[in-house]
């Protein structure tokens, strides 16, 4: 039987899908930024897609491919609606923190308190900068108007 030849490929691809799904699960459980949580959810969808395509390849069937196309569609819809909610949440609380909405928790659940919140910007991020456009350089009278060598 010839299917045994593609069994290693199936198993490796399923392992990659499982790793992606698990990483997405860890991300959505543990991160507090709403946008990073959505990125983690999309990563779980990627793991599912890899697994579906691997099974589709293994069985020589189109079902996995078609299902992944619908997963893409639903992911696009989900991202659009969810990002609108994220923007609304940000405009109400000023933060992208999931813990800013912990007043929605159950009554018998203890509230999340950040005991040791790190101080603001211990290491300031360095982003690449561009030269500002449309700003005149400071005038210098001693500067020659033309370069001596062209």
């Amino acid at each position: 039987m010839n299917t045994a030849q593609s069994l290693p490929l199936l198993q490796n691809a399923l392992t990659v899908g499982a790793i992606l799904f698990s990483l997405g699960l860890v991300g959505i459980l543990t991160r507090r930024n709403l946008i990073v949580m959505f990125l983690a959810a999309e990563m779980m969808l990627q793991g599912i897609s890899v697994s579906l395509v691997a099974w589709s390849r293994y069985h020589g069937d189109w079902g996995g491919h078609v299902l992944v196309i619908f997963v893409l569609t639903v992911a696009a819809c989900e991202a659009a609606v969810a990002l609108v909610f994220v923007l609304q949440a940000f405009s109400r609380t000023g933060r992208l923190d999931a813990a800013a909405w912990q007043s929605l928790r159950e009554a018998n659940v203890a509230r999340t308190v950040d005991h040791e919140l790190p101080s603001i910007d211990t290491v300031p991020p360095r982003f690449p900068t561009l030269a500002p456009a449309g700003v005149l350089p400071p005038a210098d009278e001693n500067e020659p108007l033309q370069r001596e060598h062209v």
Partner: peptide, 28 residues
Amino acid sequence: LAQPAGLAPYDRVSNEPFLSALAGAVLL
């Protein structure tokens, strides 16, 4: 649109990182 300036403090803490990593790795 929504990112406040600099790194927010909630980006530098996690909810139960050990338990989450354990859950994900057990699933894996």
